[in-house]
């Protein structure tokens, strides 16, 4: 697995949002890589900066209020943050595409499904109308939409939530991208439909040999879909590992807390572990390690200095020197 080449790497990215009085450090020095043919999950709670870091890849942060302070995003040897709007447009949808959370608001209600998918292709490729139609039908088939010829002329409101998300995925696949960014694509869906979409994403990732950057807050989904995982908290990455490692040997107190707090039948009758306190406001983050006010292992140094990543080997890194000193072995 480790010999796959990097497709995109985000290095020390910092994104701020400012209003008249405050600066919110939404993403505060985040680095991650997605390799070829790999599914990587960014997991974290709302406001931890996972979506902002992904939107920065495509240059979709509005400025103002947003501002990319520093860092670089390397894709095929180019720093995406340095590209002009035209060059970025050539990459968006063509090499890197995105699927959003809310399929109803991200489709245009006044155009048919067919119009919207063909538009995605026409922007990047010169193609004959017949071929365009064929390709669009094939895409709808690939994402598991039944009777694609009829759906081609439907409007978004005529489809169910699951079907809309399938259409969104078809649009994202339209130009055979190398990387698909999926931002909580199943959060608005029911469990049985979520299972369908996850299965679809997995099989598409394999059959098209693309990479997927999957953003979610749901650890169950992570366990199911990811090859590697980055756990984010308050704008920084606190732990990264291969999926199996992360779930069986979590090394950061936040990851450990999250896993322990998930309810299920077997924990019935025991008191659930709960992480005390709340997620910090990005404009008023505590000094030092942002997790220290909620951490059971915090020592004085945690309140002063944000710790570095500790290496557990096999690409398993966690930002907690306290636990590392207690047990540095794998």
């Amino acid at each position: 697995m480790a010999n796959k080449t990097d497709l995109i790497s985000v290095n020390k990215l910092k994104v701020n949002f400012r209003n008249n009085t405050e600066i919110a450090r939404a993403v505060d020095g985040v680095s991650y890589t997605v390799r070829r043919e790999e599914t990587v999950c960014l997991v974290g709670e709302s406001g931890c900066g996972k979506t902002v870091s992904a939107l920065s890849i495509l240059g979709l942060i509005d400025s103002p209020p947003g501002e990319i302070v520093s860092g670089e995003i390397l894709f095929a040897g180019k720093n995406l943050l340095k590209l002009g709007e035209q060059e970025l447009q050539r990459i968006r949808g063509n090499h890197i595409s995105m699927v959003f959370q809310e399929p109803l608001t991200s489709l245009n209600p006044v155009f048919t499904i067919g119009d919207q998918i063909t538009e995605a292709i026409r922007i990047h490729k010169v193609i004959a109308p017949d071929e365009l139609y064929e390709r669009c039908i094939q895409l709808l088939k690939d994402v598991g939409i039944t009777a694609p010829q009829e759906r081609f002329n439907d409007y978004p409101h005529q489809l169910s939530g699951g079907q809309r998300q399938r259409v969104m995925i078809a649009m994202a696949l339209a130009c055979d991208p190398e990387l698909m960014i999926a931002d909580e694509p199943t959060t608005a869906l029911d469990v049985t439909v979520q299972a369908q979409i996850l299965q679809l994403l997995k099989s598409l990732q394999r059959s098209r040999s693309m990479s997927v950057l999957y953003i979610t807050h749901d650890l169950g989904v992570v366990a199911n879909i990811a090859d590697r995982v980055y756990v984010m908290y308050a704008g920084i990455i606190v732990e990264q590992a291969y999926t199996y490692q992360l779930f069986h040997h979590p090394r950061h107190p936040y990851t450990q807390g999250l896993l322990a707090s998930l309810p299920n039948l077997s924990k019935r009758g025991q008191r659930l572990y709960s992480i005390p306190g709340t997620v910090p406001n990005p404009a008023h983050k505590p000094p030092g390690c942002p997790f220290h006010p909620r951490c059971p292992f915090a020592i004085d140094n945690c309140r002063i200095q944000c710790p570095e990543m500790c290496n557990y080997g096999n690409e398993h890194l966690a930002r907690c020197p306290v636990l590392y000193e207690k047990n540095p072995d794998i």
């Binding site: 709302s46 999250l258 008191r271 992480i275």
Partner: peptide, 14 residues
């Protein structure tokens, strides 16, 4: 609610 908050509310209800 956020994942880390859900457990707090579940415990409270219990």
């Amino acid at each position: 609610l956020d994942v880390s908050i859900q457990a707090q509310i579940i415990n409270l209800l219990n």
